Amino acid sequence: MIVCTRNFCGAARSFVITIVDNSGREIIRLSRPYRCSTCCFPCCLQKLQVEAPPGTTIGFVKQNWHPCLPKFTILNEREEEVLKIHGPCVPCSCCADVNFELKSLDESSVIGRISKQWAGVVKEAFTDADNFGVQFPMDLDVKVKALVLGACFLQDFMFFEHTNTNK
């Protein structure tokens, strides 16, 4: 089944990612069900659930419909809005980083960033490896930090997933 979803669903496939600590204990679980990932179907937008510890939902990352821009909302465990994320119109770039801005709820100020970092021509052309950077305020709630990390993984799958990868 995994081979079928990887080959036929590509970046839209469902996933569960576990993040473990140094002792191998699972501390965060990111879950995304299969969803159609096209702007023509605003009823099937992406939604990632974040659990920390596994079994305790701390929030969600929800894609917002927009005809041109990648937009997301970070929600707490009660599905109340916490932060907004705005990406560039074309979420790919040659020779430069691709930045998704973390914004306040009223979208008036940028408080951080998720960046897909440019790794150079050779690495970008011949490998599926990507480097990401996440910046947020030091005093941001630890649960929201985990949700921002989850948003980073979701954006990787949605915009930077290579079709021939075995992620």
Rank of each mutant, 00 (worst) to 15 (best):
I2Q: 12
C4N: 06
N7W: 09
G10Q: 07
A12Q: 14
A12I: 06
R13P: 00
S14D: 13
V16A: 05
I17L: 05
T18G: 03
T18W: 07
D21R: 06
D21Y: 09
S23M: 10
P33L: 07
Y34W: 12
R35I: 01
R35A: 00
C36K: 08
S37P: 11
F41Y: 13
P42F: 08
L48K: 01
V50L: 01
P54I: 01
G55K: 06
G59T: 10
V61D: 01
K62W: 07
Q63L: 02
N64H: 09
W65I: 14
W65T: 10
C68M: 12
C68L: 11
P70N: 06
P70M: 04
T73N: 07
I74F: 05
N76I: 08
E79S: 08
E81A: 06
I85G: 02
H86R: 09
C89T: 03
C89I: 15
C92A: 06
C95S: 14
N99E: 12
F100I: 03
L102I: 12
L102N: 10
D106L: 12
S109P: 01
R113Q: 14
Q117G: 04
A119S: 13
V122F: 15
E124Q: 07
E124V: 02
F126L: 13
F126S: 09
T127S: 13
D128F: 12
D130K: 10
G133P: 05
V134L: 08
V134R: 04
M138C: 04
V142N: 08
V144F: 13
V144I: 15
V144R: 03
K145N: 03
A146H: 10
L147D: 01
L149W: 07
F159Q: 01
F160M: 02
E161K: 10
N164I: 06
N164Q: 05
T165N: 07
T165A: 05
N166A: 08
